[in-house]
Amino acid sequence: MEGKLFDVGFMFRAAPEILSRLPITLSITFVSLFFSLIIGFITAIARLRKIPVLTQIFNLYILYVRGTPLLIQIYMAYYGLPLVLLAINREFGTDMNINSIAPIIFIYIAYSLNEGAYASETFRAAIESVDRGQAEAAHSIGMTPMQAMIRIIMPEALKVAVPNFGNNLLGLVKNTSLAFSISVLDIVAAAQVVGSRSFRFCEVYIVLSVIYWVACGLLTKVVQVVEKSLNAGERGIAA
């Protein structure tokens, strides 16, 4: 007897097992987002201020990230960083156990660096888009460059940056689907397990599609709310 070509009911039965791994996907997203913002901000400021050496290093880093596939970067983190640690062990006689490092740590590192490069470009473009006169005015009333950056320029730059960060964030969520390549058990890995057990690959990938789609839809809404609240001050006349 031939089975069903496509089993709708199976999708509902498979969903809970796949969803049980959603926290991993979300943790990759938000841990990377957090560190990428820090990396992006620091590198953007260093490049805007044209700090020698750092600027060149950061430019090279951004060129690498933007010019190579994410999958290669993941493998570079996974296979490259342990070599660095081993070299440190040899050089300094330390005893770091590279086997005890969970694969997800390499994913956090790879994704933070990857996303950081894009965040850096977003920050830089946003800061440069702020009218020069704003910085001049801040300077003229006696603010330090740091005060001007934090009090005046960043708040205005953020308004420009938030929609772009929204796009970056959606890209990041979808990119997390490569984490399974170094055996991190995210929703993709869970789907593959379920798929190879049942040979119902199409069904599990539809489930995956729906999960990503809903997650991205919700995040888009969140970004819109943030955008609105940033612009709220300028609309209408304050009482």
């Binding site: 009218d131 006169g133 704003q134 001049e136 005015a137 801040a138 300077h139 003229s140 009333i141 006696g142 603010m143 009090r151 005046i152 708040p155 205005e156 308004k159 001050g233 300028e234 304050a238």
Partner: peptide
């Protein structure tokens, strides 16, 4: 900068602050 003050051709008021906020800021 703290002993001089400048009035610009293009005003250069802080865009995301009210008139009051602009004067208060410094």
């Amino acid at each position: 900068t703290r002993n001089t003050a400048m009035v610009f051709q293009q005003y250069n008021l802080f865009k995301n602050k009210t008139a009051l906020g602009n004067v208060e800021e410094g």
